[in-house]
Design a protein around this nucleic acid. Sequence first.
DNA 1: GTTTAAGTGGACTCACGAGTCCAGTTTCCG
DNA 2: CGGAAACTGGACTCGTGAGTCCACTTAAAC
Lengths: 218, 218
Amino acid sequence: MMGNDTANGRPAREGGRTARKRRAILEAGAVIFLRDGYLGANVDEIAMLADVSKQTVYKQFVSKEALFLEIVSRLTNAGSDAVHGDIPELAPGGDLRGFLEDYACRQLDIVLTPRLMQLRRVVIGEVGRFPELGKALYESGPKRAMEAMAAMFERLGQGGLLLIDDYAVAASHFNWLVMSQPLNQAMLLGDAGIPAPAALRRHAADCVDMFLAAYGRK
Amino acid sequence: MMGNDTANGRPAREGGRTARKRRAILEAGAVIFLRDGYLGANVDEIAMLADVSKQTVYKQFVSKEALFLEIVSRLTNAGSDAVHGDIPELAPGGDLRGFLEDYACRQLDIVLTPRLMQLRRVVIGEVGRFPELGKALYESGPKRAMEAMAAMFERLGQGGLLLIDDYAVAASHFNWLVMSQPLNQAMLLGDAGIPAPAALRRHAADCVDMFLAAYGRK
DNA sequence: GTTTAAGTGGACTCACGAGTCCAGTTTCCG
DNA sequence: CGGAAACTGGACTCGTGAGTCCACTTAAAC
């Protein structure tokens, strides 16, 4: 029923039948788990959405719990990779303010995405049941982001562009100044609470102003 | 079995039998719902913990859902009241830095409490199912706190103690600078991730430094 | 002290969902 | 082509938990 196949009659995406089904299950599971949470999710519905029999789900994954853990881990890693793929550098002699604004916007754009917001909500909601997931999200999310920022600020500080005595503290300030208002808002108000791109841009500019007022060269 | 009664043979806390049982159910429900979430909670267990029959639970509350909504609303309001009860004012000629540090610490101490953290986790986890709860928590939490801060900064700004052009923006910066690092950490790392009082004090001092560097009189 | 409402416990219904089983089909690989 | 392995669907088991019912006890009100 319907294209999506290559000339040799095989569906376009790579891998054998088993691998393809496995991917379909992971993707369907992500949709359902992110929407309904761990307890609220229904394995039959996941199987249906993946266009796979329930049996196949249980051949690939030991249990609902194992499937959930696998999916959440993958989403966490995917999110982290997206945030940390090709981070820009300030060109020598470049515009510091503009650079920091772009850095902030980039981070906001990636993190404030329905899928990542839902992931965060689900993980937070399950911290009691699956503490490892919270820990993993913390470490590959804010912790890693702040480490990258601290390294960046160290370069900027040693280049004489900023006046910072504790790079980790400055990174934490910058990170949370930028992320937390929209993040917390979206967390509690649902995906409709994710600010529009224009609002995010303004917000980033305000935060960079504030940051430079505190850490910029006088 | 065991004391807790006054001389006249009645349990110490006020109200008739019905009112007492109702309070017991609300308290037990809070414990269980905060620990297990909405779906994970078990009405039989709540009844048992409240030392009440299941029937009584259903006489007082229409359904598990109604009980949950009632409990979460109460906890949300209680939290909001705790944060907004007797907010200090800066005495004329007083120490601004010390005042802001105290303000920050006070806010941190109240919000970073296991019960309020659990409430936040549960509400966030249920945003998909009960969006009203997220909205209510947002409004009586961060929104209200930021409004109070904006009013305070307006007084301080007009008194010439701070240089601020947008009080709401400054309030948002101060609020999230102070709250977000520990809050997000505790959110993902569980109650064990709540920083010790000493660490909070240091954190508050760092944030106030940063804030004053940006908004203080030059 | 009698009435009346509230509370008790424990049995019960009923829906739902995780996980299993099986008989029959499809797909892949040699 | 032929056989092994994977997949299917749909029926089935079984535990769990929300909500109800009932015969009986307790306690509050007048």
